[in-house]
Design a protein around this nucleic acid. Structure first.
Length: 874
RNA sequence: GCGGACGUGGCGGAACCGGUAGACGCAACGGACUUAAAAUCCGUUGAGGGUAACCUCGUGCGGGUUCGAGUCCCGCCGUCCGCACCA
């Protein structure tokens, strides 16, 4: 019998049409089954999908198809993160309007996603650039504003001079804009902020509850929020030394225990006290100006010397009125953390020590490491920040650091100056409010108007959405909304007078902070969410995406969910119950002699191992094989999903993406790996057809007794079923695939041994073939449907339920235990599963190999681990 | 500097809660089929020793706990990632 090769191309589009026509993956909100919401991070419509998308969506689809088979009502939607800079860049480069450019890209990518055979509910598709989406975002902005969660304030912002826009702190990487790569400048602008810091504590402590998130992400979020506990101390200033009558200086410290090691105070150049002192001291003013010029670029910060300028101001030590401390302005003190002023304890802080050594301020160690003689403990170039006991610290001497901190806090809290305690305990966070204003066109308009007489006026709800105009000029950089002839001119909704619109649009991270909620009911027009739908579907049970969103997107979404809860749009505060961050797709790089990168498609590889060499396919020019790196356009080491799907089919691409590496790790794309996956597709097709042929006219009902080989087949099938089920649940797709290979090997071996076609074996083979097809269905749905039909089924596998494991089959009557002597394996013993220990011991000691290993000695002890192992201790 | 993860054959990786290390795939080698190729099938493949049954060594390095350690503990080395003048 010869079986025709599986034609992936034809079969895949055929099954995609069948699924489409049957509306198989559309999810209904009214359904009695338990819900399961699986979501992959929605893509930016750049125009083409890349292999990273294939990996991400293949994983999500495995979960979706598996959970569906498990009887869940699965929500698995897809949409487009459609606002953002590239559309504007394209508009400037190619004179295509951003909306048209975006829509074209969406259409192209949607076709690509469809060719992957993903079980998505396309009826819920949303695009964030659609007014039917962003109008609700505007509504929520207004609700947040009313609830005190939005603020307009002047602030120093990160300005990207190339993109001509403001960037969030998170979008500044190494002092450069995350998109343009241009060095970021500081500017004072009036901006809109979401008050994420209102939730600092809750965002931090709730991380503990996210037990289905990767530890890595949880740690990153904790660090980002950056809570630190300390003491806010009010230092008195020597009145005669201040220029504008200031009497005190507030300082935040996490190390109040070192208060007797203090040598100086330092102010940020932006500190008000520094400013007022500078007003009367031109040299100081010049120093401050110099500090600001240094900028925030990372290289500069790293290299920058600690510089200071003595203001002449003197602070008074809280425990000793005669102890005066010089107040410097220093370039390393940040204005926006704590109070913008610090006290310096050189012996125990490296920065303070560098500073002190430069200006000859000395140091006094106040913490002495255990076991070190305080008399000989001297600090020169390296500050000591470890544990120890207090020294040189008056009433603190001999205490631990923790005890000393507590002592200082207690004493200073009690002490009062001008009705106020001198110090209070304070918690500080690194997290800053989220500035969302962007000077861009292609984003969600901020629904605010500015009236000369009424001031800042929220756009009335009835006037929403504030729509983006389509007639836009992209002849120069900057924000085209600002120079549009009519768009921004409106009448004040309050007084009817002349007014102008806010021309800034929202950061695109706002768009992606709530899309998961909109998917639960994307049709409702009157409100952002239907409460019944969000309450039913949220939280997302499994969210899957790249680690690059570990902080920004996930933290913003967590904030947004809380803000939506505060304004009644949602009933929960954590949006994603399970999070999985998948690794990247990486590939070798190739360079020609002139240093230019060559694409994999242009390169021909010959040989293997050490003699592996590459040439340009067209010219034969030798090519150097470079390091394996993330697929990127600049390195030209990308592989186009369309090419792979066109050549091998979507199933092969999906299978390979899931098979080679653990999903959280990077996967190396190799031609050999894809070939291997493709061979296996063909092999499965043959195997299932052979099994179908073998089991023709198998009994419809289960035979009462199975013979030996039938039992072996059934054990292999149910063993694989148990393993694959377990490992899909744990998202260990590579392990699932190994078990499927193993199962295929054993089924193939049994069929190849040409057993007699007895009814019970026919039944078992048929059952095994069906289980096999169902096991690989989540990964290779098209092939699975094709095989399912080949097995004679008239209904779709996509809506078929998952097979049940027969656990009895997995229990053997006799088991083979490894037998060790002193921890080294010497033999196996086969014994009844429920044999008593005494019997096992007797059989073990009777084994020739064990006798030999014991060499006449008598065993001291025999350890029997039930069902696992026997160890004879000699 | 702070924080985190990881280190297993030629390669990707597997090994539940401490219990047969190397499943499964890739590559390689040998063979079958074929005029030939492709496809497919069979076999070998951690290192060393032995004709063989088998034996010795082996999960980055050094110690420790244990009947037993890839897995747990202590100390190193290396790689990768995140944050970074945060007081």
């Amino acid at each position: 019998m010869s079986i025709e090769r599986y034609n992936a191309r034809a079969a895949e589009s055929r099954w995609q049409q069948v699924w489409d026509a049957g509306n198989v993956f559309a999810t209904c909100n009214e359904d009695v089954r338990p819900k399961y919401y699986v979501l992959e991070m929605f893509p930016y419509p750049s125009g083409r999908i890349h292999m990273g998308h294939v990996r991400n969506y293949a994983m999500g689809d495995v979960v979706a198809r598996y959970k569906r088979a498990r009887g869940f009502n699965v929500l698995h939607p897809m949409g487009w993160d459609a606002f953002g800079m590239p559309a504007e860049n394209a508009a400037m480069d190619n004179r295509v309007p951003p909306r048209a450019w975006t829509q074209q890209n969406i259409a192209a990518m949607k076709a690509q996603l469809k060719s992957m055979g993903l079980s998505l509910d396309w009826s819920r598709e949303i695009a964030t650039c659609d007014p039917s989406y962003y109008r609700h975002q505007q509504k929520m902005f207004l609700d947040f504003l009313a609830a005190g969660l939005v603020e307009r304030k002047q602030s120093k912002v990160n300005w990207d001079p190339v993109d001509q826009t403001v960037l969030a702190n998170e979008q500044v990487i190494d002092g450069r804009g995350w998109r343009s790569g241009a060095p970021v400048e500081q500017r004072e602008l009036t901006q809109w902020f979401f008050k994420i810091t209102k939730f600092s504590e809750d965002l931090l402590t709730s991380i503990d509850r996210l037990d289905r998130w990767p530890d890595k992400v949880r740690v990153m979020q904790r660090n980002w929020i950056g809570r630190s506990e300390g003491l806010l101390i009010r230092f008195a200033l020597e009145r005669t030394t201040t220029s504008a009558g200031e009497t005190e200086l507030e300082v935040f410290t996490t190390r109040p225990d070192t208060i007797f090691g203090m040598k100086f105070m330092a102010l940020s150049p932006d500190h008000p006290l520094a400013q007022s002192a500078a007003a009367k001291n031109p040299e100081l003013a010049a120093f401050i100006a110099e500090c600001k010029r240094t900028g925030t670029a990372q290289e500069l910060i790293d290299k920058a010397e600690k510089l200071g300028f003595d203001t002449g101001i003197r602070a008074i030590h809280p425990f000793d009125p005669t102890w005066k401390l010089p107040v410097y302005v220093a370039n390393f003190v940040l204005m926006d953390y704590g109070t913008g002023a610090i006290y310096g304890t050189p012996a125990h802080d490296q920065r303070d020590l560098d500073f002190s050594n430069k200006y000859g301020l000395g140091n006094t160690p106040v913490v002495c490491p255990e076991g070190q003689d305080p008399q000989t403990f001297v600090i020169t170039d390296i500050a000591y920040d470890g544990d120890g006991r207090m020294i040189n610290s008056r009433f603190l001497d001999g205490l631990t650091i923790a005890e000393a901190k507590e002592q200082i806090a207690k004493r200073l809290e009690r002490e009062v100056r001008g009705n106020q305690p001198i110090a209070q305990r304070q918690v500080n966070y690194r997290l800053r409010d989220w500035g969302i204003s962007r000077q861009r066109y292609w984003g969600c308009p901020i629904p605010i108007i500015y009236c000369a007489s009424c001031g800042v006026v929220p756009v009335p709800e009835a006037d929403l959405p504030v729509k983006l105009p389509d007639d836009i000029e992209f002849d120069r950089p900057g924000n085209p909304l600002d120079r549009h002839p009519t768009w921004k001119h409106v009448v004040c909704s309050n007084c009817g007078g002349e007014a102008t619109r806010e021309t800034d649009t929202m950061d695109t991270f706002v768009d992606s902070s709530w899309y998961f909620a909109r998917f639960t009911d994307p049709w409702i027009e009157t409100r952002p969410t239907d409460r019944k739908a969000v309450d039913e579907w949220l939280p997302v049970d499994q969210y899957i995406g790249g680690i690059e969103h570990a902080i920004l997107h996930l933290l913003y979404s967590r904030f947004f969910t809380r803000a939506m809860a505060a304004t009644g749009h949602i009933g929960i505060d954590e949006p994603f119950e399970g999070l999985f961050t998948q690794g990247m797709v990486v590939h070798e790089t190739y360079r020609t002699a002139d240093g230019a990168f060559a694409a994999p498609a242009e390169v021909k590889i010959e040989g293997a191992g050490d003699v592996r060499r590459a040439t340009l396919a067209e010219t034969g020019e030798p090519v150097e094989i470079g390091p394996i790196e993330k697929m990127s356009k600049s390195k030209r080491n990308t592989v186009d999903p369309d090419d792979i799907i066109g050549t091998f089919g979507a199933d092969t691409a999906r299978w390979f993406m899931l098979s080679d590496s653990p999903p959280e790790r990077d996967v190396i794309w190799t031609e050999e790996g894809v070939q291997g996956a493709w061979r296996f597709v063909q092999r499965l097709w043959r195997l299932v057809n052979e099994a179908a042929e073998f089991s023709r006219e198998a009994p419809a009902s289960r035979p009462p007794v199975f013979s030996g080989s039938a039992i072996a087949v059934r054990k292999a099938a149910h063993g694989a079923l148990a393993k694959v089920s377990e490992n899909i649940e744990r998202l260990r797709f590579n392990v699932c695939i190994a078990h499927i290979y193993e199962f295929a090997n054993s089924l193939q071996a049994i069929l190849a041994s040409s057993p007699q076609r007895v009814p019970d074996l026919k039944f078992a083979v048929r059952e095994a073939a069906e289980i096999m097809v169902q096991l690989f269905h989540p990964m290779m749905p098209h092939l699975a449907e094709e095989c399912w039909a080949a097995l004679g089924h008239k209904t779709l596998l996509a809506i078929h339920s998952w097979p049940e494991v027969e656990h009895d089959l997995l229990l053997e009557d006799t088991i083979t235990l490894p037998v060790q002597v002193n921890g080294k394996k010497r033999a196996d013993v086969t014994i009844a599963r429920d044999a008593r220990n005494a019997d096992i011991e007797a059989s073990v000691l009777a084994l020739d190999a064990i006798k030999r290993a014991l060499d006449g000695k008598s065993p001291r002890k025999v350890i029997i681990v039930p069902q696992r192992i026997v160890n004879v201790v000699a």
